[in-house]
Amino acid sequence: MKIMVAVKRVVDAYVAIRIKNDGSGVELANTKMAMNPFCEIAVEEAVRLKEAGLAESIHVVSVGDDACCETLRQALALGADCATLVETSEPLQPLAVAKCLKALVEREKPDLVILGKQSIDGDNNQTGQMLAGLLGWAQGTFVSKLTLTDGQAIVVREVDGGLETLQLTLPAVITTDLRLNEPRYAALPNIMKAKQKPLTKVPIVELKVESDARQTLMQISAPEPRSKGQRVNSVAELVAKLHNEAKVI
């Protein structure tokens, strides 16, 4: 089985973002970037399937500018075999990313595509489902357990009501939730080896996909800060204030 994993470079999850003064966006210059945490889980799951003998190869892909090569190299260091960057200087919206991924899937013919369920910058939670829709494939979203058997994927999904189990016909698209696995750290020798693994760059025009922005970003603003709260010194004072002042109990 061939697995394709899509990864995204985002602002590091532990960095407090800064909004540009003119409201045109979030400051990315001199900001620490990292692989989206859900994408790390996607890479890890693919590597585990390969280690278990269920997959022969892992192809990791990303869509973005040259800086995304760093993210792809990280995935190679974690155990992916080869990488492709779809080069574009424009930040693409999920539909356009899904179209790029569809073009790559048609070239590479993987049996399974694994993505993070959402990126922690745009919080859109769309790309995997869109890719599955464009390909006409089954989708397993928000997956916390994945089992492959006989041309089928059994997925356990984290849904609002609990845990849902589905059986999907392969090929399929899977998006990862937090508890699917705990990603490993890349070992130094593997980081060195990753530099020798193949990384191909494909200019987006070569894929012949329509990638026009369908949405205009009008403004980015900071949410209203909450008004300053107060410290209470005892449970008795807390309950009295909740009753008399806030009137919520």
Binding site: L95, N124, N125, Q129, L131, G133, F142, R157, V159, D160
Partner: peptide, 22 residues
């Protein structure tokens, strides 16, 4: 919700529309 988040982007792709989430 996990209900809407699951199928709406698939629908959007079928209609070739960029979804606006959440």
């Amino acid at each position: 919700t996990t209900f809407g988040k699951n199928f709406m982007p698939r629908l959007a792709a079928l209609l070739d529309v960029a979804q606006i989430s959440d």
